[in-house]
Simulated scan of single mutants.
Amino acid sequence: MSFDLQLAGTRVLVTGGTRGVGAAVSALLASLGARVVATARSIPDTAVDGVHYLAVDLATPDGAARAVAEARAHLGGVDALVNVVGGSSAPAGGFAKLDDAEWARALDLNLMAAVRTDRAVLPEMLERGAGVIVHVTSIQHRLPLHDSTIAYAAAKAALSTYSKALSKEVTPQGVRALRVSPGWVETEAATDFLGTIAASAHTDLAGARQQVMDALGGIPLGRPAMPAEVADLIAFLISPRAAAMSGSEVTIDGGTVPTA
């Protein structure tokens, strides 16, 4: 039996779509025949066939509206929105190191970027009575790390709650809203981080990887997830194969979170 995800021709906007999970999502959807627009603060040097890139900063108040307007102009409409953009550049040192500017940066990038993008894309979806929105959150909203990502974890918790509330409003009108909650994903940035740990601890990448897993309390699977694995999950969720799913949060963390 074929398990075609039926995504050919689907018009998808992927935020944060040039690195890590976002890049994997953009490439996979394009390979499945979707028409993809991917946003980032800068256009990558190497493009993926079938992906149209927009240079836009979604952490700014007008960035989301511009991204959706340009995506709509390029695609003729948006059937699915995958909000991947996020991250943290906060300094280490815990709560006392985070001033108002750091908190504002974390909230703008990890919460308000999604809120503003949803706000721009939803009127079209609601008028059509169809659409899918996926918010990429993080297990840190359930398992926060305090040293340098406390603001990030708080913003992702807010994103998760917002996404659930949004699903209750828009699902009866034909728009599905879902959350994907990754644990540690070995992206390019994560690999660079492992290199820094390895150098400072006088170990190799495997040793650094184990240190990170130990800091998380262990990953029963024995390894982090890969971007392509998260992309596979997201592709399923936006497809008609997942038509009965809305409001759900799907965790992909190799068993890191120790509770149900």
Rank of each mutant, 00 (worst) to 15 (best):
S2F: 09
D4Q: 10
T10Y: 02
G17H: 01
T18D: 02
T18E: 01
T18Q: 05
R19N: 04
G22T: 03
A23Y: 00
A24I: 04
A24V: 05
V25T: 03
A27N: 01
L28F: 02
G33A: 11
V37F: 05
I43V: 15
L54Y: 04
A55L: 09
L58T: 01
L58Y: 00
T60Q: 11
T60Y: 02
P61V: 12
P61A: 15
A64G: 13
A65W: 00
A65S: 12
R66K: 14
A69D: 15
A73T: 12
L75W: 05
G77N: 08
V78Y: 06
A80G: 03
A80C: 12
V82F: 03
N83H: 14
V84S: 02
S89T: 14
A90P: 00
A90T: 07
G93P: 01
F95S: 13
D99Y: 03
D99S: 06
A101R: 13
E102F: 04
E102R: 07
R105F: 05
D108N: 14
L111Q: 04
A114W: 01
V115W: 06
A120S: 12
E124W: 07
M125I: 13
E127F: 08
R128M: 07
G131T: 06
V132K: 00
V134Y: 01
V134W: 00
H135E: 04
H135V: 07
V136G: 02
I139M: 12
H141K: 06
R142I: 10
L143V: 12
L145E: 13
L145N: 15
L145Y: 14
D147G: 11
D147E: 12
S148D: 08
A151C: 11
A154G: 09
A154V: 14
A155Q: 00
A155D: 01
A157W: 06
T161Y: 05
L166H: 11
K168E: 11
K168R: 15
P172G: 10
G174N: 09
V175N: 05
V180S: 02
V180A: 07
G183T: 04
W184P: 01
V185S: 03
A189E: 08
F193N: 08
L194A: 04
L194D: 06
A198R: 09
A201E: 14
H202Q: 13
A206F: 11
Q210W: 09
M213P: 00
L216Q: 10
G218R: 06
L221W: 08
G222Y: 12
P224C: 08
A225M: 09
P227I: 04
A231W: 01
L233G: 01
F236C: 08
L237A: 02
A244F: 15
A244C: 08
M245D: 06
S246M: 07
E249V: 15
D253Q: 12
G254R: 00
G255Y: 13
T256C: 10
